[in-house]
Computed example of a mutant assay.
Amino acid sequence: MVSSGFETSSNLLTWSMVMLAFHPECQARAREEVLQVLGDKKEITSDDLGKLKLVTMIVNEILRLYPPIMELTRLVDRDTNIKGYTIPKDSLVTFPILMFHRSTEIWGDDAGEFRPDRFAEGALKAANGEAAFMPFGCGPRICIGMNFSIVESKIFLSMLLREFAIEFSPTYTHAPVVAVTIQPQSDAPVVLRKL
Rank of each mutant, 00 (worst) to 15 (best):
residue 52 L to D: 03
residue 91 S to W: 03
residue 85 Y to M: 10
residue 49 L to W: 01
residue 91 S to D: 05
residue 176 P to V: 03
residue 174 H to F: 15
residue 121 E to D: 15
residue 99 M to Q: 15
residue 136 F to Y: 14
residue 69 I to N: 13
residue 173 T to L: 12
residue 77 D to T: 14
residue 62 I to Q: 10
residue 51 K to H: 07
residue 52 L to M: 02
residue 127 A to N: 07
residue 102 R to I: 00
residue 126 A to M: 04
residue 55 V to A: 01
residue 52 L to F: 10
residue 73 T to E: 12
residue 113 E to Q: 15
residue 162 R to F: 02
residue 113 E to K: 14
residue 119 F to C: 11
residue 115 R to E: 04
residue 137 G to A: 13
residue 170 P to S: 14
residue 116 P to Y: 06
residue 107 W to D: 08
residue 144 I to S: 11
residue 97 I to R: 04
residue 55 V to Y: 00
residue 115 R to S: 10
residue 91 S to V: 02
residue 150 I to N: 03
residue 55 V to C: 02
residue 144 I to A: 08
residue 74 R to S: 12
residue 115 R to V: 04
residue 68 P to I: 08
residue 56 T to G: 14
residue 153 S to F: 09
residue 132 A to I: 07
residue 98 L to K: 09
residue 155 I to Y: 01
residue 107 W to Q: 06
residue 168 F to S: 10
residue 86 T to W: 02
residue 105 E to W: 03
residue 86 T to R: 11
residue 105 E to K: 12
residue 89 K to M: 06
residue 65 L to N: 02
residue 101 H to N: 07
residue 65 L to G: 09
residue 77 D to A: 06
residue 123 A to E: 13
residue 146 M to S: 15
residue 165 A to Q: 12
residue 122 G to F: 04
residue 69 I to G: 12
residue 59 V to F: 05
residue 111 A to I: 12
residue 152 E to S: 08
residue 166 I to A: 00
residue 105 E to H: 11
residue 148 F to N: 03
residue 142 I to V: 14
residue 100 F to C: 07
residue 102 R to C: 06
residue 142 I to A: 09
residue 58 I to H: 10
residue 165 A to P: 00
residue 57 M to V: 00
residue 99 M to T: 12
residue 80 T to Y: 03
residue 71 E to V: 14
residue 135 P to L: 10
residue 69 I to F: 13
residue 49 L to Q: 03
residue 88 P to L: 09
